[in-house]
Design a protein around this nucleic acid. Structure first.
Length: 435
RNA sequence: GGAGGUGUGACAGAGUGGUCGAAUGUACCGGUCUUGAAAACCGGCGUACCGCAAGGUACCGGGGGUUCGAAUCCCUCCGCCUCCGCCA
């Protein structure tokens, strides 16, 4: 069941200024696969950076001069030469003005440079194909039989209603659309799945965390939700906090502003959390039932690894997700997203989709990505290698798994004789064998 | 939420507004000594930016201010500790 990511040796792994300076052409080319032309931004950044460095040199020199004078004033004061000291003081006035002007100018450059920098998404890996939308995604493999039962089997929302295990209307009353209640065996199924996923992650060596469900803006920035996706998160304005859209945010931000050692790596974490997403702009049959919710449950796995072994880490995560789906006896397929369909921060993403027998279509249940150094650069997460050199780590994460569509697929694919059969592996976790 | 205290390098812990990027101890790394180890002694040991380099600049919880000069004074925010209130 092992999975191999085959890729050429060359990677451009970070959008640090150094990389932009040194790999301008490769970055522009790589990002053109996403369908974006960053030539103008990159060139502006390069110019701003050059000017910034010049300004900094000026600033540093000016500060050095005034530091020098201050030191001399100190000596003069000590030896009682008050008048001379006063003379020197007047001299520093001009330097002070000069340095504060330079500082302001430099900060101006920095902030317009950063504004541009934040608009540039991660560069896709070399094996990621160019493309604009999901139509260009590559299907890597398909597993299990997918039968289109849509003519005679029931949709998950009908089953859920009939068995009285999920109540969408009640959720709409109490909160709003997209916030269902799970009830009786429905609630137990949720709980069982969460436990199943956590146990499997534990067996695979991931340390379990129960993270906070709200995050501050530094964390949102660290993993790349801010400023890019601000509108997708619920925002607690009174306290400047955001509801987490995924456990990725608190889990990865554990390592914000840290310097690790090679011995610490790889770090493997997992955590179950509810996830909150505004999903602004979604509507229609795509969002019916469990297809798209504002609040849903998910177990997330996260890895922090050395750059040289992040491909291997990604393979391990893919294999792990595969084993979960196989345990659940669901037909699924693996896609490698095209450049344009990937998230802002990802260098490479594999999506897992399960077959929805009643809807006759594939539903995304997991997304496994390597962010390479993109998040690490924002997080300032580095490690000291064996030679003592400091490098950015690679960060990765994946859903293992997101519950609602798994539940939808279980209900639809495993229905027989008016009941829903629970897969054998799952029975010990939910405590019953059919619904 | 109210009152008070506190926040310095991996840790512990100094620091009168003027060579303080910061004493000292521990830990850590290298060396001497030793059959080996320990001890002792010698040396090294923060991060970032600019620079080919020499070197320069910034950083003592975050931000702002006073001053020729701030780890040291002032304001503000945050974290931690103690007491009180409220509460699962």
């Amino acid at each position: 069941m092992g999975f191999k990511v085959i890729r050429p040796k060359f990677t451009h792994s970070m959008l640090t200024l150094t990389q932009i300076r040194e790999e301008r052409d490769q970055i522009i080319k790589a990002l053109s696969k996403r369908g974006v032309d960053v030539t103008e931004s990159i060139d502006k950044i390069i110019i701003l950076d050059k000017e910034r460095r010049f300004l900094q040199k000026e600033l540093d020199d000016t500060l050095a001069q005034s530091n020098n004078l201050s030191r001399q004033i100190g000596e003069l004061m000590k030896s009682g030469k008050k008048e001379e000291a006063e003379e020197f003081k007047t001299e520093t006035v001009g330097l002070k003005k000069k340095s504060s002007d330079l500082k302001e100018k430099m900060q101006g450059h920095e902030s317009s440079m950063n504004d541009l920098l934040y608009t540039i998404p991660n560069t896709p890996s070399d094996i990621v194909v160019a493309g604009k939308s999901e139509e260009d995604n590559e299907i890597i493999s398909t597993h299990g039989e997918q039968v289109d039962l849509s003519d005679y089997c029931k949709s998950h929302w009908d089953i859920a209603k009939e068995k009285d295990i999920i109540d969408f209307d009640l959720g709409a009353k109490v909160t709003g659309a997209g916030f269902p209640f799970y009830k009786g065996k429905g609630a137990k199924l949720q709980r069982g799945l969460i436990r199943y996923f956590l146990e499997k992650a534990d067996e695979a060596g991931y340390t379990e965390y129960i993270p906070p469900l709200m995050i501050n803006s530094d964390s949102g920035f660290g993993t790349g939700q801010l400023p890019d996706k601000e509108g997708q998160m619920y925002n607690m304005k009174a306290d400047s906090l955001y509801m987490i859209p995924t456990a990725e945010v608190p889990l990865t931000n554990i390592y914000r502003d840290t310097l690790l050692t090679a011995d610490d790596l790889p770090i493997k974490l997992c955590g179950y959390t509810p996830c909150f997403r505004r999903e602004a702009g979604s509507y229609g049959k795509e969002v019916r039932g469990l297809n798209r919710l504002h609040q849903f449950d998910k177990v997330e796995i996260v890895q922090i690894s050395e750059p040289s072994s992040s491909d291997k880490a990604l393979e391990g995560m893919i294999t792990h997700v595969q084993s979960l789906l196989e345990g659940l006896e669901l037909p699924y397929r693996i896609l490698r997203l095209c450049a344009g369909d990937m998230g802002f921060t990802a260098a490479i993403t594999y999506d897992f989709e399960v077959w929805s027998a009643a809807q006759g279509r594939w539903l995304e249940v997991s997304s496994v990505s390597n962010f390479e150094t993109f998040q690490a650069n924002r997080l300032k997460c580095r490690y000291k290698d064996a030679d003592g050199a400091k490098n950015l780590v690679h960060t990765l994460n994946g859903s293992a798994l997101a519950l609602p569509r798994i539940v939808a697929a279980l209900l639809e694919n495993h229905q027989a004789d008016g009941d829903v059969k629970i897969p054998v592996d799952l029975i010990p976790f939910v405590g019953f064998d059919k619904i």
